[in-house]
Design a protein around this nucleic acid. Structure first.
Length: 343
DNA sequence: AAAGCGCGCAACCGCCTCCCA
DNA sequence: ATGGGAGGCGGTTGCGCGCTT
């Protein structure tokens, strides 16, 4: 007998979440907090598995998610942490506020892996890939040459080009990675017992290379949450892809595309950053999702439940004016804190 | 303009770990 | 001490979209 499935899948819906489902889930969690995911779908009126609800919430609907492309710092930190922790995405994610393990995992698999390979680094071991022999037919396709000089290039290079290990950037990164890793091996062994000291340990180790986690622009809670004067405008296009400027914090509220839903329903106007939303609130949020902040919850719930009369004139009211799930990716300009649409 | 292809990412699957009775 | 349940986690899949031909 195998393990029992986490839930009875008969009659349960699978596949992409609809706006209506998101709304129900958000509404339920804002009202009741996170508890007993198995019971959530039933109580929230969803035909979903509890796991599915949890994933949807943690990976997508959580309001503290910082979305959009990873910044260079974040990317570097991911590489650094991966060298120490391996594929322990949740641990890596715990060092990157607002990022989910799934997001980091995806980014690793789709972007960072390729980058490292292009730099001649084995993404698994963080060691240099074996030097190819002189003959071109032995050149690894994973070690394309030309791109080393063009980091922004995304295409896989022509395998006919010779490798250029002499490239200074490549060498530098390799050395850095190795130095970090070598210093990390023994520390990582301790990681299991000394989880609490992980941050300190990592910060210390990171100083081995020229990259230090201290440099990482950690996102304070108030930076993750939407400030009072934030406006979110409806998407101007249906594009769900993210294109971002590297200098901005890219905070995406949501970008799901509901392919089968022509009617976009508006979710509540939302004021995450009410005056009471300070670090204390954030702590509550982290611990029990505003369990101790009735006023805040009530405010959110009220907003959630009052979503029929929203029109564009309310946009200046420091609130979400559109269904969270219908927003395209948006970014927060770190200077003005104004939301802008990423087109 | 249309078809094919590749990429990115949300979601699923199933094993692992933790906690509690 | 142990067995079961629930959540956590990492690997994988499949779909949608954009780019190329």
């Amino acid at each position: 007998m195998g393990r029992q499935p986490c839930c009875d899948k008969v009659g349960l819906k699978q596949g992409p979440w609809t706006a209506e489902e998101d709304k129900k889930l958000i509404n339920f969690i804002l009202t009741n907090g996170q508890c007993c995911w198995r019971a959530v779908p039933k109580l929230a009126g969803l035909l979903r598995c509890g796991k599915s609800c949890r994933l949807r919430w943690t990976n997508y609907l959580r309001p503290d998610l910082k979305r959009g492309l990873l910044s260079e710092y974040e990317e570097k930190m991911v590489i650094d942490l991966h060298a120490q922790l391996g594929n322990r995405w949740s641990k890596i994610a715990s060092h990157l506020p607002g990022r989910t393990d799934n997001e980091i995992k995806n980014h690793w698999n789709t972007h960072i892996k390729k980058k490292l390979k292009k730099m001649g680094i084995d993404p698994l071991t963080h060691k240099p890939l074996p030097l190819p022999t002189s003959s071109t037919e032995q050149q690894s396709p994973l070690l394309p040459s030309a791109l080393v000089n063009e980091p922004s290039q995304t295409r896989e290079n022509s395998p006919s080009k010779p490798m250029e290990y002499q490239n200074s950037e490549s060498i530098e990164v390799v050395n850095e990675t190795i130095s970090i890793q070598s210093s990390s091996i023994t520390e990582v062994a301790k990681d299991e017992q000394e989880d609490g000291e992980e941050s300190t340990m990592i910060a210390k180790e990171s100083q081995v290379g020229d990259f230090c986690t201290d440099e990482v622009p950690l996102i304070e809670p108030h930076e993750i949450m939407l400030p009072n004067d934030v406006n979110i405008l409806p998407p101007l296009s249906s594009s769900s892809s993210s294109s971002s400027t590297s200098s901005n914090y890219n905070i995406t509220i949501c970008n799901q595309n509901y392919a089968h839903e022509e009617q976009h329903q508006f979710l509540p106007s939302f004021d995450w950053c009410s005056s009471s939303f300070d670090s204390t609130t954030y702590s509550n949020f982290e611990a029990g999702f505003w369990d101790d902040d009735d006023e805040f919850i009530n405010s959110l719930s009220m907003l959630i439940n009052d979503c029929d009369e929203i029109d564009t004139t309310t946009r200046n009211d420091a609130t979400f004016t559109q269904d969270l799930t219908q927003c395209s990716r948006m970014l927060i300009d770190d200077d003005t804190w104004k939301f802008e649409q990423l087109l």
